[in-house]
């Protein structure tokens, strides 16, 4: 489903990734762990098209994505739930979700999908008209996840979904991820909460200082 091969990414002269290879098979849940600054977020951003790799290849469903702009990658079925959630704080919950379905492919199934997301996260339906910035941390993470699901992804990239959340909320987020996984979604998760993620994931990669170890 996703093949990252000997990927190199650098910020200016500073190399962030040198020669990382990661594979996610269809329907698989893969964890990516490692210390801060190891380049986990950099890897996810490169897959999503926000960073241009210097060398190496990224293939999604057999075709290269590394030369494509982010919107094309979203259109192909890869969604990133970024670190810190990056919601549109001054827009309503509903607007955030509608924006998640911006691509042509997702536009067509927008209504059915919205209903589905509200079914998974009833809280978001209750707060439909509230500004995203006024939600609690847990609700914001739900919205970030729901917004990504609106784009009909086949591969979901998650960057620290449990960061700063109470244990009870982390548990419910992970049980939703497990549910998505059971339904056949492929997931690649960067997580500090190693215990939680390793009980769910089929495989894990450990990244240390920009290189696999």
């Amino acid at each position: 489903m996703l093949e990252v091969e000997r990927l190199e990414v650098s910020y200016g002269a500073l190399a962030a990734l040198h020669g990382v290879s990661v594979t996610v098979r269809p329907g698989e849940m893969v964890a990516l762990v490692g210390p801060n600054g190891a380049g986990k977020s950099t890897l996810l951003k490169a897959i999503a098209g926000l960073l241009a790799p210097r060398a190496g290849a990224i293939r999604f469903e057999g075709k290269p994505v590394s030369a494509e702009p982010p919107q094309q990658i979203v259109e192909r079925g890869v969604a990133l739930v970024p670190e810190g959630r990056r919601l549109f704080a001054r827009m309503t919950v509903r607007d955030n979700l509608e924006l998640g379905a911006f691509t042509k492919r997702a536009q067509k199934e927008r209504r059915a999908r919205l209903e589905r997301v509200y079914n998974i996260f009833p809280r978001l339906f209750e707060r439909e008209r509230q500004l995203a910035g006024s939600l609690s941390g847990g609700e914001q993470q739900m919205l970030a996840l729901g917004r990504a699901l609106m784009g009909l992804p086949r591969l979901l990239l998650l960057d620290e979904p449990s960061l700063g959340l109470a244990p009870r909320i982390v548990e419910s987020i992970f049980s939703i991820l497990a549910e998505l996984h059971r339904e056949g979604m492929s997931l690649l998760i960067v997580e500090q909460n190693i215990q939680a993620v390793l009980t769910l994931a089929e495989r894990a990669y450990i990244l240390a200082r920009g290189a696999p170890s």
Binding site: G49, R86, F102
Partner: peptide, 14 residues
Amino acid sequence: RATAEDWEAAALMG
């Protein structure tokens, strides 16, 4: 509006 608020997040929406 989304782009005005956070262009990177907007790009992630496609």
